[in-house]
């Protein structure tokens, strides 16, 4: 394997990522829709007491609640407001263009099927990110729903994990699983190259 092969992969991945990112950004409204649907299902299942549904405006997802808050930023003193935390879905969704870029850069076979599978597989992690962002706002930032200290810590950890780690890590793992051929060939070629170098050194 020539040293430039990793560089070539990187070059292709960056190029494809920029293209995919720009297209994905333009389609923000559409890529947000399935996540909004599953978020709606999730909040209805887990928080039926105070969650009323999810509203989508472009790529912004708003959690509609029955929770009333006062004395928080944005609410005038003496007034009560109904809490409706918002999340910009795209902060949790850029894994899709990253996954597509990796599949294109590695020349994955059956690209369309893998892209569709990957896009679907990303959704639960995106739902995780959005829902824990809402939960962080509801339980920690506004304390509209009182929870134990342990639950607060768990929500904070889950939010941070969903925001800082999952959006970028899951696409890499999915790519490694969906295009195992690339990694296997990569390791095999490097091994053979090492053997060849050793043989040349002996001669």
């Amino acid at each position: 394997m020539r040293p430039s092969l990793v560089g070539l992969f990187l070059f292709k991945a960056i190029g494809w990522f920029v293209v995919c990112l720009l297209v994905w950004y333009q389609l923000g409204d559409h890529v947000t829709r399935p996540v909004a649907m599953f978020c709606d299902v999730a909040v209805a299942a887990f928080f039926p007491d105070w969650a009323e549904g999810v509203e989508q405006a472009g790529s912004t997802l708003t959690l509609l609640t029955t929770l009333e808050v006062s004395g928080v930023a944005g609410v005038p003193t003496g007034h009560v407001a109904v809490l409706s935390p918002e999340v910009n879905f795209l902060q949790y969704g850029y894994g899709l263009p990253l996954l597509l870029a990796l599949l294109l850069a590695s020349g994955a076979r059956r690209l369309l099927a893998k892209a569709v599978f990957g896009a679907v597989a990303l959704v639960p992690f995106q739902v995780w990110g959005v829902c824990f962002d809402w939960l962080k706002q509801v339980t920690i930032e506004t304390a509209a729903v009182p929870v134990s200290t342990f639950a607060r810590e768990l929500i904070a950890l889950s939010y941070q994990f969903g925001y800082l780690v999952l959006p970028a890590t899951v696409p890499l793992l999915l790519w490694a699983m969906l295009d195992r051929r690339f990694l296997s060939a990569f390791i095999l070629e490097a091994t053979l190259e090492g053997e060849t170098e050793k043989a040349d050194g002996r001669n």
């Binding site: 991945a13 960056i14 990522f17 990112l21």
Partner: peptide, 15 residues
Amino acid sequence: HLYLWQALIMLDVLV
């Protein structure tokens, strides 16, 4: 800040 560099750093890790 929110999208491009987040993914590029992860590409850096991968490479």
